[in-house]
Measured scan of single mutants.
Amino acid sequence: NQESVVAAQLIPINTALTLVMMTTRVVSPTGIPAEDIPRLISMQVNQVVPMGTTLMPDMVKGYA
C-alpha cells in the first residue's frame, strides 16, 4: 500500500511547506504520494490544513 503525505500539524493558509509539517501514512483515499515530499518543500497550501489531514493535489499551489 502506498503512503500519502499527511499534515503533521495545523498548516495555516498560504504557508510554505517544510519537512517538519508533513508525515506519511497509508490512507484512503490516497493523496499526494510520499515520494513527492521533496517536491512539496517550499510550496504553499491554498487552504487551512488541519493536523492529520491528507494533502491532496488541489490543496498545494502549483502542484497539480
Rank of each mutant, 00 (worst) to 15 (best):
R25I: 03
N46T: 11
S42R: 08
E35V: 14
T30W: 14
M21G: 02
P29S: 15
R39L: 09
Q9H: 09
A34W: 06
M59H: 07
G62D: 08
V48E: 13
T15Q: 07
Q47Y: 10
S42A: 13
V45E: 00
I32M: 03
S42E: 08
L19H: 11
L17Y: 00
P50L: 11
M59L: 04
D58Y: 14
E35L: 05
G31S: 03
V26P: 11
G52V: 02
T54C: 09
M21C: 03
P33R: 09
T18I: 04
I37V: 12
G52A: 06
I37R: 12
Q2T: 13
T23I: 13
T18F: 03
T53V: 12
V60Q: 00
A64R: 06
V20W: 10
A34D: 06
A34F: 05
P29V: 13
A16I: 05
V27C: 04
D36N: 11
A8T: 07
A8G: 06
K61H: 06
L17F: 02
M22G: 00
I32T: 02
M59V: 04
L55E: 00
S42G: 15
V20N: 07
V6K: 03
T23K: 14
P50Q: 14
M51N: 09
I32V: 10
Q9G: 05
P50T: 15
G52F: 14
T23Y: 14
D36M: 12
K61D: 05
Q44W: 09
N46F: 09
T24P: 11
D58W: 14
Q44S: 09
G52Q: 13
Q9L: 08
Q47P: 02
L10C: 15
V26W: 10
Q44K: 09
D36T: 07
M51A: 07
N14D: 11
S28W: 04
E35R: 07
A7E: 01
V27H: 03
G52C: 08
M51W: 09
G62C: 15
D36H: 12
T54G: 02
R39N: 06
R25T: 04
I13N: 14
S4Q: 02
N1E: 15
V20C: 08
T30L: 11
I13K: 07
Q9S: 06
L17N: 00
R39S: 12
Q47A: 07
A16T: 06
T24K: 13
T53R: 13
I41H: 04
P12S: 13
M59E: 01
P57R: 04
V49I: 15
L10E: 07
V48H: 12
G31F: 02
V5E: 01
E3Q: 04
T54I: 10
T54R: 03
V26K: 04
Q47S: 08
